[in-house]
Amino acid sequence: MTAVTPSDATQHVSPRLKGRRRSRTLAIGIAFVGLIVAVALVSLVWLPYEPSDTSGGRLESPSWEHWIGTDKFGRDLLTQLMIGARIAITVGCGAVAVGATIGITIGLVAAFAKPWLDDTISATLDVLIAFPVLLLAMLIVAAQGASLGTAILAIGIALSAVVARLTRILASQVLRAQYVTAARTSGTRWFGIVGQHVLPNIWPTLGVNLALLFGAAVLAEASLSYLGLGAPPPNASWGRMLQEAQATFTTAPAGAIAPGIALVILVVGVNFIADGLRDLADPTRKRSR
């Protein structure tokens, strides 16, 4: 950053204001995600009704007994929504864990490999990345059959190509740095270089992108469930709730709106956290919002 700043239109925002807006992004993100995580945690110990309890009237509108009404079988929608929070977070964490494990490993191998192997891996990754996450996940679900585990695995594998390419690009940038050459000439082995130089250097960027992929995983799971390829009942995934409520949108709009809002809160929250973290990790980056 230079002392002299160009006099373009964006300069009207003072640095202090920008700093405040940044931390606000992170705070809103944490609040949104915290809300959904809290709901998911509460659902583990307390639910308003049993998930299979059909004692409510069919398609009731929101009331004191049923805060967001009931579905076409008379089941409480808030109960399903709370279980949905648990499923969304499980899928997000699970898929990102799977994707990060596979992706970082492949990316590091490519970065360290001989050029021909690097090129082969890169070409394969380019093909895989060209495929949208959901299509790859659908393919895997097609072979494996629909279940919560398959959805996590499928989305994780689909995300891993993105992680691998990012890791490879970031890692090979680090590997070209002079301090790595110095470490190599002083006899540090490759795992030492990975542990001491590569991972600490690429972690901030990688972490931000993993947060973004969490959002992508949650959306992909919702789409899979909406298409009937996600976790089968009794798992009340938000995507499946939306699919079930679609036919009764006019008579019971709450059931078709609430899960969507919950999804948006979670994904916006995660994206905000990613944005906030990126600014924290890289203070030199200007105008990221």
Binding site: S223, Y226, L242, L263, V264, V267, V268
Partner: peptide, 18 residues
């Protein structure tokens, strides 16, 4: 645009249909 990247496309479809 922040909101748009967080919204599932099928839900937007449902809302627009309604």
């Amino acid at each position: 645009s922040q909101l748009g990247i967080a919204v599932p496309v099928f839900w937007v479809g449902m809302l627009l249909v309604n």
